[in-house]
Design a protein around this nucleic acid. Structure first.
Lengths: 239, 239
DNA sequence: AAAAGTCATTTGTACTACAAATGATCCGTC
DNA sequence: GACGGATCATTTGTAGTACAAATGACTTTT
């Protein structure tokens, strides 16, 4: 959802539209949504399509529906905050500094922990993938190649944890963060700045040293985090 | 979903049924599901109800639907692993030791980080709530009261992080873990065993010492984690 | 044999009709 | 007049039909 293209599925479009309105605050928690028939008419879709969308929104914890009463927006605490769509809607809806800080904090928690876990659990092929990504970073001729290899590096580390939940969490957070800035991107002239840090991480994972891996990754993430902070401020200031 | 009672909503029942089948492996990733009409008939519901369920499963990343081709189960990597339902289905479907270990690892990552964050970000009222929970634990006369206060303590800490994503993540993981064992539960005779550890956590949060809070929480969690491990083994052995 | 067009199958959307639930209302009783 | 219960009206829940749209499979043409 939320990813370009003139949505082919009608109900997905409705999900997206209503999701944005709810997360964006147009429908406040506790507020009642219009009747299905009216809502369907206002969105120019059949009640069938609208209902399919409503069920999806219900599954994401955004709304609660009862007969006779209708649908009401649930309290934020019930939302599936880690759902990719919900996260995207929050990113789209005038993200507050606070929310971005939360995302950054999540990354600062997840990635070092993942590096440590990878150092403990990685197998040979997973290590090879990490090293390959590192070499690709070292060999990157331009910023695009660097960014691609960088992403592959992080993904390889996450895969090496052998923890699907951790992978899923990282994926969701990284995707959301990319809404605001390229992951660890830097100005073109010194885009290889963090290469030594990446080496430290991969080396610690190779040597199966969880603590060293965690620390190296922590340095890396807090470093790029402070940079993101700077960019965010600029962005928000400009907005 | 998955929570007792003869499901009132038909489509929710279908979601649950199909979700369990998919996550449980009856429908393997890559496999095609029967046509909507056939599937609806086999589950004794209308195509309308079935479709509402399919949309929900699609939103959870379990299936992918295209015209003419039908619906197929997506690869595990696309599943919303952090969705409460998906997690419950995994818990229900003969959980492997591996999966439980993943849940425990997540908790070991999240809770110490949360304690540190709470030490940084808590406000006065949030600290008061944590202290109140601690006092309730200290005053607990029986195991039930202890467990309730214990849960409140952890929830209070998570709330004090002021990070909704972190709260959401903890909630999902804690709920899933409770499928297997009471959070930090102990034998009746020494159920207050971990009270000093809880004091350390609350005190570090009071003093705004993130590192101390993280360490104290880490002790607590790894401690109860090893206990869980023991219980899990027993459980799996018994099964 | 390759390309283009046709067909058949399956999902997508719309619409209608009625069932079920439930808040609101009205009525009767005390 | 107040309370309790039956009735009503409204809104979602489910079923079923009909057709549109997409697309893989097949057939025809060159």
């Amino acid at each position: 959802m939320s990813k370009g293209q003139p949505v082919r599925n009608l109900h997905k479009h409705v999900v997206d539209e209503l999701g944005q309105r709810i997360v964006g605050g147009l429908f406040a928690p506790g507020a009642s949504l219009p009747r299905e028939e009216a809502l369907a008419e206002s969105m120019v879709v059949s009640r069938t399509a609208l209902r399919e969308a409503m069920k999806v929104l219900g599954a994401k914890g955004l709304i609660e529906t009862r007969q006779k009463t209708g649908s009401r927006v649930r309290d934020k605490q019930h939302w599936n905050q880690l759902d990719a769509d919900v996260l995207n809607w929050r990113c789209a809806a005038m993200p507050t500094d606070d929310f971005i800080a939360q995302l950054v904090e999540m990354r600062e928690i997840v990635e070092p922990a993942a590096a440590a876990s990878a150092a403990r659990n990685r197998d040979r092929s997973q290590l090879a993938r990490i090293n390959a990504a590192y070499k690709a970073m070292a060999a990157a001729a331009d910023l695009d190649a660097w960014v691609a290899a960088d992403f592959e590096f992080h993904e390889a580390v996450l895969t090496a944890t052998n923890n699907e939940l951790l992978q899923s969490l990282f994926h969701v957070i990284a995707t959301a963060l990319q809404t605001f800035f390229q992951l660890s991107a830097r100005k073109a002239k010194d885009f290889k700045y963090s290469l030594p840090l990446h080496f430290e991480v991969s080396d610690a994972i190779r040597l199966r040293r969880p603590d060293a891996a965690r620390e190296a990754m922590r340095h890396m993430v807090t470093d790029s985090g402070s940079l993101m902070q700077a960019r965010k401020t600029r962005r928000v200031t400009a907005a």
